[in-house]
């Protein structure tokens, strides 16, 4: 082999290292050369279709790959191929396919929507990914919520109201429940009495004597709980003050407490510290009105719509 290489002198590059080490200069195989030419042809075709070479302050936009879309004035516009134009066109095409459904959704009053089987199945299939992308992080995948933080949307218990209009208002504008802390206004004994009263309201076990004192406090101007929770303690949906007479708890984790002292402590914690954590974000601007209407129906149908 080494012998052979030396006799083929003219086919080396002529460089010699370490006395005998030479570099061959064989022609490239034909398949490789043609492959190379093919890439050149491909590149030129590509330049003709897609934006490519810069020219001064502009660039060669490509001649064949034009994209047609409708602008916000409703006129048809054409622009050279780019991903944004392509997206705009695809979005318009998809919107056109969904338009009959969304038009129907927009025109029908809420109570008719759930009675229309075709529209109902559209709401479920389009609402599911919307809910998963935007709501599930808080209200959990099935809408079951999380005690201590996020309300359950599948039951018929509503803080702000379970009618279509109220749910739409909640999603559009967001909500922020506020209850002041009573750590300074009331002493620990009073807070304990109130906690017992609150527990007694929903049929939980409570110390009767303390609950009776709590009842007075609740309706007095010292604690003034009735301002927000109402005389009947059923809460006011306009300010989202909880109904204290049912067995549904959101902030005080009474069902999770292991013993009576734990239940009292959970309610005391809410009264002492107040509540300012209930923030439901605003979706106006992030979601389109028709998406909000769709989600409203979706949430309403999750279980407990009124």
């Amino acid at each position: 082999m080494a012998e052979n290489a030396q006799t083929q002198g003219p086919q080396t590059t002529g460089h010699v290292w370490d006395e005998t080490l030479q570099e061959f200069n064989n022609p490239l195989p034909n398949w490789w050369i043609w492959g190379f030419y093919a890439t050149i042809v491909f590149a030129i075709t590509y330049w003709l279709i897609y934006p490519s070479w810069p020219i001064g302050k502009s660039f060669l936009p490509g001649v064949f790959g034009k994209i047609e879309y409708t602008n916000s004035e409703g006129q048809t516009e054409t622009w050279h191929w780019n991903t944004r134009a392509k997206l705009l066109k695809e979005t318009e095409e998809a919107a056109a396919l969904q338009k009959p459904y969304f038009d129907k959704l927009a025109s029908l009053p809420y109570d008719k929507i759930s009675k229309d089987p075709e529209l109902s199945s559209f709401v479920v299939s389009a609402g599911k990914p919307l809910f998963a992308d935007n709501c599930a992080a808080c209200h959990q995948s099935g809408g079951g919520g999380k005690i201590g933080s996020y309300p359950n949307l599948t039951d018929d218990n509503w803080i702000y109201g379970g009618t279509y209009d109220k749910i739409q208002e909640t999603i559009t504008k967001g909500r922020h429940g506020y209850m002041p802390p009573f750590a300074e206004a009331l002493d620990p004994a009073q807070i304990e009495e109130l906690a017992n009263y609150v527990l007694s309201l929903s049929g939980e076990k409570a110390d009767p004597a303390k609950a009776a004192l709590g009842n007075q406090l609740f309706h007095s101007h010292t604690a003034a709980c009735f301002y927000c929770h109402g005389n009947d303690a059923k809460g006011r949906q306009d300010i989202g003050s909880a109904n204290l007479t049912d067995k549904v708890w959101l902030w005080a984790n009474v069902p999770g407490a292991s013993d009576q002292a734990g239940k009292v402590a959970e309610v005391e914690k809410v009264i002492t510290g107040g509540l300012n954590r209930g923030v439901m974000p605003t979706w106006e601007g992030r979601l389109k009105p028709e998406q909000i209407k769709l989600l409203t129906v979706y949430v309403h149908e999750l279980g407990g719509g009124k």
Binding site: A137, K146, S149, R277, V279, M280, P281, R286
Partner: peptide, 21 residues
């Protein structure tokens, strides 16, 4: 930004599985 509440971010940074199992 604005998609979740501050409270959610606190819970989530502290322990993501507490809000997203």
């Amino acid at each position: 930004g604005g998609k979740y509440s501050n409270e959610w971010h606190v819970q989530h940074l502290n322990q993501p599985t507490s809000v997203v199992p």
